[in-house]
C-alpha cells in the first residue's frame, strides 16, 4: 500500500518536472544580446570586464554582485561546524583520550601522505589566490586544503588540529570579510562596495577587493571544514 502511494507520488512529481522541461530547448541562447543586456546573465557578462576587471565572471558574481549572499553562506558553514560540535559533545571520562584512528596505518600510506601533504596545501592556496583569474576560488581552495589535513589525520595517529588556532584563523578571516564590507560602506555608498583600484584585466593584482575577500573565504572555509572533520574523526563509539 505504501509502495503504491510512493509510486503514485513519484509519477506525479516526475510528470510535473517533465512537463515544463519538455518546453525548454536544450542549448538555446537564453541570455540574449550582450551589448544591450536585457537579462541578468548578459548584464554580468558585459559589465564584469569593464567595471571590475575580473577575468572569472562567476567569481565576480559570487564575491561582488552577490557578496552579501556569500557572507551568509560562510555563516551557514560556521553554524554547521558549531552545530556538529554541540550535537556530538560528550563528557570525557578520566584518562580517556580521543583517538583519530584505532589502528596504525601502513608505512606506505604514512610516507606517501607526508610526501603529498605540502603539495595539496600549495595547490589549495594556488586555487584560492587565483580565484579571480582561473576556475576556482575560496570555497574550492578551502576544501582542497581540508582534504590535505584529512589525509594527515587519517595517516598519523597523533596528528590533531589545534582548535585554538582554527578558531583564531576563522575569526580573523570573518573579521576581514566584514571589515572590507564596512570599508565599502565608509568610502563609498553600499556595503561591500569595490573601493580599491581595479587594475587591468588578467593581472594577479586586479579586481579591487575581490581577491582579498576570496582569500579570507578560503582561510575560513579551510578552518571550518578541518574543524568539522576533526570533530567527526575523534568520536569513538565502539
Amino acid at each position: 500500500m505504501k509502495k503504491l502511494l510512493v509510486l503514485l507520488l513519484l509519477a506525479v512529481v516526475g510528470y510535473s518536472l517533465y512537463k515544463p522541461l519538455s518546453q525548454v530547448e536544450f542549448g538555446a541562447d537564453r541570455i540574449g544580446d550582450i551589448e544591450n543586456p536585457t537579462t541578468v546573465g548578459a548584464y554580468y557578462l558585459s559589465h564584469t570586464p569593464s567595471d571590475l576587471s575580473v577575468a572569472n565572471v562567476i567569481t565576480a558574481i559570487v564575491v561582488n554582485y552577490r557578496g552579501f549572499d556569500t557572507l551568509g553562506e560562510v555563516s551557514v558553514l560556521f553554524l554547521a561546524a558549531t552545530g556538529i560540535g554541540s550535537i556530538l559533545y560528550r563528557r570525557r571520562k578520566e584518562g580517556e583520550h580521543s583517538e583519530t584512528i584505532t589502528q596504525p596505518s601502513s608505512q606506505l600510506l604514512q610516507a606517501g601522505a607526508k610526501l603529498i601533504y605540502p603539495a595539496i596545501l600549495v595547490l589549495g592556496a594556488y586555487v584560492f589566490i587565483h580565484g579571480h583569474l582561473t576556475p576556482g576560488g575560496g570555497f574550492q581552495g578551502g576544501a582542497i586544503i581540508a582534504t590535505g589535513f584529512l589525509l594527515m589525520m587519517m595517516s598519523y595517529k597523533d596528528f590533531h588540529m589545534n582548535h585554538t588556532v582554527l578558531t583564531w584563523v576563522e575569526s580573523l578571516a570573518g573579521i576581514t570579510f566584514v571589515s572590507v564590507g564596512i570599508g565599502g560602506l565608509i568610502v563609498g555608498k553600499t556595503f561591500l562596495e569595490n573601493f580599491l583600484a581595479i587594475g587591468t584585466l588578467n593581472d594577479l593584482f586586479s579586481g579591487g577587493i575581490i581577491p582579498i575577500i576570496y582569500i579570507a573565504v578560503g582561510f575560513k572555509v579551510a578552518a571550518e571544514l578541518a574543524g568539522v572533520l576533526d570533530t567527526l574523526l575523534s568520536i569513538k563509539e565502539k
Binding site: 536544450f26 562567476i58 587591468t200
Partner: peptide, 14 residues
C-alpha cells in the same frame, strides 16, 4: 544555463 557551442564564462585574453 548551457548554450550550445558556448564557452565557459572566463575571459582569457588580455
Amino acid at each position: 544555463g548551457y548554450i550550445s557551442n558556448g564557452t565557459s564564462p572566463i575571459f582569457s585574453e588580455k
